[in-house]
Design a protein around this nucleic acid. Structure first.
Length: 214
DNA sequence: ATATCGATTATCT
DNA sequence: GATAATCGATATG
C-alpha cells in the first residue's frame, strides 16, 4: 500500500469555533490551510484538505464582490461569520467562500484547491472524469470550479450553509494537521487590486491550482 | 511547453 | 450590453 498522509483518517475531526472566522480574511485564509472540507451525505462522506485559498476584504477591496455593497447576491458576506457564500461565474461554475469578520462587516475566503482524502470515487463521478493514476487526482479538486463540482456545491443547495457546524452537510474540520510552510502570491483571475498578495498556498503541495509540478 | 478562445448566465452599468 | 474570483479544448512553437 502506498505511503501517504492521505490515509491518516483515524484522527478525529472537530469543527472550528465561530470566532475563528470572525477576523480579518487574510488571517482566516492562512489558518484555513491544512484544515479539512467535509461533505456529509446520507451514505457518503467526502473529505479533502485545504491547500490553496484567497482572501477578499470587505467594501474596501475592489476585487471583492462585497465592494458592490450588501445586495441579494452578497448578503451572506455581510452576515455572521463561518457561513458559505456560493456564487456562479462564467455561466459554468460555482465557487465556494466562507464569510469572515463579525456580522455587519463583509469579508470572505475563496477556496481554490483541495487535496482529496476520502471519497475520491464519488468526486470523480461528480466531475464526470476517470482517474487512471495518482497524477489524475489533482483534476478532482485543483481549482475553485473543480472542487465545487467534486463536492456537489451549488448556490441553491449550499449558499448560507453554516460551515462551523458539524451537523451541516458541508463544514470545515480540524484533524490536528499543522501546515509547515505557507506561500503568498497575487490573486488569480482578477483585474482590480490585482497587486495584492492575498492568495495563500501550502508550500510545495502538488494539489494547488494552475501548473502541474514536474 | 504556452497561448488563445468558447461556453453560458448572474450581476452590474 | 459588457463583464466575470473558470475550465477544458484546440492551436501553435
Amino acid at each position: 500500500m502506498p505511503e501517504s498522509h492521505a490515509l491518516t483518517q483515524t484522527a478525529q475531526i472537530h469543527p472550528l469555533d465561530r470566532v475563528f472566522f470572525s477576523r480579518d480574511p487574510r488571517r482566516v485564509a492562512r489558518e484555513l490551510l491544512g484544515k479539512i472540507l467535509i461533505r456529509q451525505a446520507a451514505r457518503t462522506r467526502l473529505t479533502a484538505r485545504i491547500v490553496e485559498v484567497e482572501a477578499y476584504l470587505g467594501e474596501n477591496d475592489p476585487a471583492a464582490h462585497s465592494a458592490a455593497g450588501n445586495t441579494a447576491r452578497t448578503s451572506v458576506l455581510f452576515g455572521p461569520p463561518g457561513h458559505a457564500y456560493v456564487y456562479f461565474i462564467y455561466g459554468n461554475h460555482y465557487c465556494l467562500n466562507v464569510s469572515c469578520e463579525p456580522e455587519g462587516r463583509a469579508g470572505g475566503v475563496l477556496f481554490r484547491a483541495l487535496e482529496p482524502l476520502s471519497g475520491m470515487d464519488e468526486m470523480a463521478r461528480a466531475r464526470d472524469i476517470e482517474i487512471h493514476g495518482p497524477e489524475d487526482l489533482r483534476k478532482l479538486t485543483s481549482g475553485p470550479g473543480r472542487l465545487s463540482e467534486a463536492f456537489g456545491i451549488t448556490r441553491d443547495r449550499d449558499n448560507g450553509c453554516d460551515l462551523a457546524s458539524a451537523t451541516s452537510s458541508l463544514w470545515i474540520g480540524d484533524d490536528g494537521y499543522r501546515a509547515r510552510g505557507i506561500q503568498a502570491t497575487r490573486r488569480i483571475g482578477i483585474t482590480k487590486a490585482a497587486d495584492k498578495p492575498w492568495r495563500y498556498l501550502l508550500d510545495g503541495n502538488p494539489f494547488v491550482s494552475k501548473k502541474m509540478r514536474k
